[in-house]
Simulated scan of single mutants.
Amino acid sequence: MTSRPPIARVAVVVPARNEDRLLGACLDHLRAAMDVLERSSPRCAAGVTVVLDGCTDGSAAIAAAAAARNARIGVLAVDHGCVGAARAAGAAAALGGADDPGTVWIACTDADTRVPAHWLRTMVALADAGADAVLGTVEPDADDVGAPRHASWRARHVLADGHGHVHGANLGVRASAYLAVGGFAPLPVHEDVRLVEGLRAGGARVVSSGRLHAVTSGRLDGRAPGGFSDYLLNL
């Protein structure tokens, strides 16, 4: 891969809709990932935007407490009821307009997901090596789905470099490439797939990495028909 501008800032976007049971753990893991990145790359700042999308539970209180403890965490309240619109709103708020978008990395995960401590460091390393987008892998929490369904998931998913999966819970993109294709579409499902299709069609360098692996909720009562929970239910 040929060179791209080095990443100077990472904007993590986390949509949340009634996730008070899991949001705290998500933010704990993101704080650890920001710490690792900033220790390894002091030139690279990182921040998180939690997008509260019509929450009616305790998610707002959890996000506010996290923001009060850590200045790198910000909170945005919207009422879209749509993950694609929530992701887009979070990205727009996080990007602002002051930076060169070629030097900003948008890292996407979900409020029910736990990323590894090296998550941001590895994404930035791949971006600095020439990637415009990075696709990680996920697996459902085995405690949620049980051993048979978890084994079925594993049998159907490649978790190595070059995998063919797209997960909004584990995805990163250079802001310039993101803006060039119009960002996330306001879709209730598959907004992540649509974004990656646009990136590839536009000639962006998309890297599928097995090193970036996250654990996400394995609940079977989905928030959106046709989404991740429905897939798990049908395994």
Rank of each mutant, 00 (worst) to 15 (best):
M34G: 14
V51R: 07
A60K: 04
A111H: 05
H167G: 01
S59L: 06
R4K: 13
P148Q: 02
A32I: 12
S59N: 05
S59R: 06
L235P: 01
R211A: 15
M123K: 03
A180K: 12
G168V: 00
D221C: 09
H190C: 14
L120P: 00
R39A: 15
V134Q: 03
L212F: 12
L76C: 10
P5F: 03
A175P: 15
H150I: 04
P225D: 10
N70D: 15
A180M: 11
A204L: 11
M1T: 10
E191R: 01
C82Q: 09
G203R: 09
A185R: 15
L120E: 00
H165F: 10
A151M: 03
H157S: 09
H150R: 15
A125P: 04
R205Q: 12
R211P: 01
R114T: 13
D57K: 04
F184W: 11
N70I: 02
L126A: 11
R43F: 02
G58N: 07
A94G: 14
G182D: 14
I7Q: 06
V14L: 13
R205T: 15
V215H: 08
D112C: 08
E38F: 02
V215C: 13
V193T: 13
E19A: 13
G102K: 08
H150Y: 15
P101M: 08
A61F: 03
L37C: 07
D143A: 15
D230M: 07
V48F: 01
L95M: 13
R43Q: 12
A68Q: 12
G96Q: 09
A89H: 00
D128Q: 07
R87T: 00
M123S: 08
A88Y: 01
N18G: 12
G47D: 08
M1D: 05
V173A: 10
G74M: 04
D192H: 01
G198M: 08
I73R: 02
T49V: 15
D112E: 14
R31F: 04
S3K: 07
F228G: 04
D161Q: 10
W153D: 00
V10Q: 05
A45M: 05
C82S: 11
A201I: 07
E191H: 05
V138Q: 09
A85G: 09
S40P: 02
A111M: 10
D161Y: 09
A98M: 08
A68T: 11
S176P: 14
A160E: 15
L120I: 04
A180H: 11
A16V: 14
A214H: 08
T56H: 05
P42V: 05
